[in-house]
Design a protein around this nucleic acid. Structure first.
Length: 303
DNA sequence: TTCCAGGTCGGCG
DNA sequence: CGCCGACATGGA
């Protein structure tokens, strides 16, 4: 990476570990929307009219460095810069103070070990609502490896890319692009017919402005935002809560039906079967207000 | 071969 | 309501 257009330093919160974030991100080795190399993370971020490749690294104590690369050496507009900063802030979850969660988790049999092992891990966000919805829909009922394969095919077929340092970086397709597709076109990638319908319908809702991140933010609370999402065909309670967790950053969002969560509970409790829904809700009672972080740490144990 | 994957829908009792 | 088959594909 030669050409450095601009550099921005962000302050990280007190209980934050760049290494934990990097390791968690690096764990999804089949991920196509960012790349982890050495102690740096690279990603193409849409901002303004363009896709900007950024490099994220640790700048010093409690500091994150963002390097914004440009093919033209021109500095990105201030508005574009702040858009990128906002994106990275959500992606690395820099606005959350984990202290209250750790206070709860240190007293919790299931979480105690995890918060110690992964101390400083924040919830990696998916700032783009369309990407978060699609990733949720794609991941329904198939294994994570295959979900990554399908996402890669969609991204490389219909996404946008930018080159930097001899590498190509991809950003997720726009709702407008997917809204214009037909079901057979998505089926060609290995996506089921029904999921193809869900993806195209969701893309249309976003493209036509019938659904937006703002609409969900202004819903007022978790239950209302969840109700909006669940009313959409293809989005059930799991996907709704997954999206509210990863994109809206609602700490009490809780994908209680998640099979990975169930497997983690089974593993940690030594049960010879997966927990029932009632058992999951019972175990989650002490997590109130921090269910999404509890889920994150339990997932981290598995993956 | 069978079963399970970071589920959801639509039909049926 | 709750239950059940269908959905697409791949890894164990």
């Amino acid at each position: 990476m030669e050409q450095i257009a601009h550099e921005v330093i962000l302050k990280t919160p007190s209980l934050f570990s760049f290494t934990q974030m990097k390791d968690a991100l690096a764990n999804a080795s089949r991920e196509c929307l960012y790349r982890v190399a050495d102690d740096r993370i690279y990603k193409a971020i849409p901002a303004g009219q363009d896709i900007h490749v950024v490099e994220i690294s640790e700048a010093g104590p409690a500091q994150l460095r963002i390097r914004i690369f440009s093919e033209t050496a021109a500095l990105p507009e201030p508005e574009t810069q702040s858009e990128i900063v906002r994106y990275v802030t959500e992606w690395f979850d820099l606005d959350t103070d984990l202290a209250p969660f750790y206070a709860i988790a240190s007293q919790d049999a299931l979480l105690k070990q995890a918060i110690d092992t992964y101390s400083g891990l924040h919830l990696p966000g998916i700032p783009d609502l369309f990407e978060a919805l699609c990733w949720g829909i794609i991941g329904q009922q198939i294994n994570l490896t295959y979900a990554h394969t399908l996402k890669r095919r969609i991204v490389e077929q219909y996404g946008r890319s930018a080159a930097a340092g001899g590498e190509l970086y991809w950003a997720f397709p726009t709702p407008e692009t997917i809204a214009a597709l037909s079901v057979p076109e998505l089926k060609e990638l290995g996506i089921s017919g029904r999921k193809a319908e869900y993806l195209i319908d969701t893309a249309r809702m976003l493209a036509e402005g019938r659904l937006s991140k703002k609409l969900l933010q202004e819903a007022g609370d978790l239950k209302k935002a969840e109700a909006i999402l669940v009313s959409i065909r293809g989005i059930g309670p799991w996907t709704a809560n997954y999206v509210l967790m990863r994109c809206l950053k609602l700490p009490s969002a809780f994908p209680a039906d998640d099979v990975g969560l169930h497997n983690a509970i089974k593993l940690l409790t030594g049960m010879d079967r997966k927990p029932t829904r009632q058992e999951v809700l019972k175990l989650a009672e002490p997590w109130k207000g921090w269910e999404s972080y509890a889920t994150l740490y339990l997932w981290r144990i598995l993956y």
